[in-house]
Design a protein around this nucleic acid. Structure first.
Length: 461
RNA sequence: GGUCCGGUGGCAGAGUGGUGAUGCAGCGGACUGCAAAUCCGCGAAUGUGGGUUCGAUUCCCGCCCGGACCUCCA
């Protein structure tokens, strides 16, 4: 059995992962705010933590993976107003799109996917505890968390409240006792002029939750006051995660909230931060038009999860070529591993248990592929099993190479070319091959005949 | 300005206090009608200046460069 080590953002060092209860390992990951299609930056944590969840399931008998849906947030309100549709319509549609996109990337659904709006009573309960404990106060219809009341505030992000004030670039609301105080609950007054804001009755009047409270509520409900792992993008470390932890630890004195924090690095596009103004904003759906979802997933796993990852179309094409080789290796032994699932090879487990080192894991995949190419059926079965933990290589080689588009005429063209070759009319044979290549179909003659595969359309020789 | 992370061959990307994985691309060869695929082989890297050390790519400090965050709903 390999010991899993993970870099814990809380301690800033790598630690051996020791679950609170090995019979029930808990993982909470911040999910999407459903106001627009998922972009590549949203996809990275989903894929990274999908691998972590798969790995945990290999190591432990029972894993509860919780990923929330944030369906109350002002960006959603703005989006609904912009589109002239209801908030519910925006969140329902965006959630469905999110599910479809993540499925295309091979991410398994989490065990629990709670919605913020289904957990308002839990949020109110936590806020009441915070007020009772002297960690929160009411001001002008808002309820605010008092940063000063929490001696540990800043521990996760490594900032002191004083430091943060120095660089503060946003005006501080006058009703705050401390500039660092943040909103737990805010008023949603009826708005006769514009669109209605979402609101729920609370001890502080009709209102809606602040940004951070939902994760405290949902992790508490599904995983308890103390739980094993909390994941998310490194951009959420502050303020979101810091505030989450402060709220939860103060609401439940004596608890530590998440014991291990795991943060994935940011994603760049062509070396630049992805942003709408730069015009390099890539949605998952856009990228799925360029390559199979599995290639996108593989690309995301080629870099270590904590490193910044630069997305380029060249890297996507390379990811696809690498997968081509793996599928070729599997194709040589297809029936050998189809029935009985093999044990996950040790080198793969060793790499993943070493702080989820997916690049090293992929190197292990290449070793297995070499062996499979050389005729080792056991290695092929191991490759397939290794792919299962990474969420890769589970398609049939044929499906991978042929895709699911219509391939009308390909078989006939191949037959014609075989006839031409038999007649030693190589000019005709080569013309047929070139024609198919122009359609994005590459031919390969081998001992057993002629096979074909899809390549990037327009790919040169 | 503050906090944090990173800078490895043409590109991508690991590891490591003692002759630097893996992949893609390139080059040579085998195979092929020619290719592709496969196989064999080749060249190619640790930002910079110091320090610690018998020895640093790895540890420490400075510098340069790149990136994330610095707040609560504008």
């Amino acid at each position: 059995m390999h010991a899993l080590t993970l870099h814990n953002s809380l301690t800033r060092r790598r630690e051996v992962f020791a679950p609170i209860n090995p019979q029930r390992v808990g993982l909470y990951v911040c999910g999407p705010t459903v106001y627009d299609r998922a972009h590549l930056g949203n996809a990275r944590p989903v894929v990274v933590f999908d691998v972590l969840a798969r790995l945990l399931r290999v190591l432990f008998p029972h894993v509860v993976y919780v990923r929330n849906i944030t369906d109350v947030e002002d960006k959603i309100n703005a989006r609904a107003a912009e589109l002239g549709v209801s908030i519910g319509e925006v969140t329902a549609r965006t959630t469905a799109e999110f599910h479809a996109d993540m499925a295309a990337l091979g991410a398994l659904p989490p065990n629990e996917e709670p919605r913020a709006t289904d957990n308002i009573p839990q949020m109110i309960a936590i806020i009441e505890k915070l007020i009772a404990n002297g960690n929160a106060y009411e001001a002008e219809g808002h309820v605010l968390f008092s940063v000063e009341s929490d001696p540990h505030y800043g521990r996760l992000s490594g900032r002191s409240p004083e430091e943060m004030q120095a660089g503060a670039r946003v005006e501080v609301a006058p009703f705050k006792r401390d500039p660092g105080d943040f909103v737990l609950w805010k008023p949603s007054p009826a708005n006769p002029e514009g669109p209605e804001l979402p609101g729920w009755d609370s001890p502080w009047g009709r209102g809606r939750p602040g940004w951070h409270i939902e994760c405290s509520a949902m992790s508490w409900r599904y995983l308890g006051e103390d739980f094993d792992l909390h994941g998310g993008g490194s951009d959420l470390l502050f303020p979101h995660h810091e505030n989450e932890m402060a709220q939860s630890c103060c609401a439940f004195p004596g608890s530590r909230f998440a014991h291990t924090w795991v943060h994935n690095g940011m994603l760049l596009v062509d070396g630049e931060k992805m942003s709408k103004s730069l015009g390099n904003f890539r949605t998952v759906r856009d990228v799925l038009a360029l390559a199979p979802g599995e290639a996108v997933r593989f690309l995301l796993l080629r870099a270590h999860y904590r490193a910044t990852l630069d997305f380029t179309e060249a890297a996507l094409a390379e990811a696809r070529r690498e997968l081509d080789r793996f599928y070729r290796a599997l194709a040589r032994h297809a029936p050998a591993f189809a029935e009985t699932p093999a044990e996950v090879p040790r080198p793969l487990m060793a790499a993943l248990c070493d702080d989820l080192n997916t690049p090293a894991a992929i190197a292990a995949l290449h070793v297995l592929a070499d062996q499979a190419m050389a005729g080792d059926a056991e290695a092929a079965a191991g490759l397939h099993a290794a792919g299962r933990v990474l969420g890769l290589l589970q398609a049939s080689p044929e499906a991978w190479f042929h895709g699911d588009e219509e391939d009308a005429g390909v078989a006939a063209a191949i037959a014609e070319r075989i006839a031409a070759r038999k007649a030693r009319d190589f000019a005709r044979a080569d013309a047929i091959r070139a024609e198919l290549l122009a359609r994005g179909i590459a031919l390969e003659d081998n001992a057993s005949g002629t096979s074909w595969r899809r390549v990037e359309s327009g790919a040169a020789s």
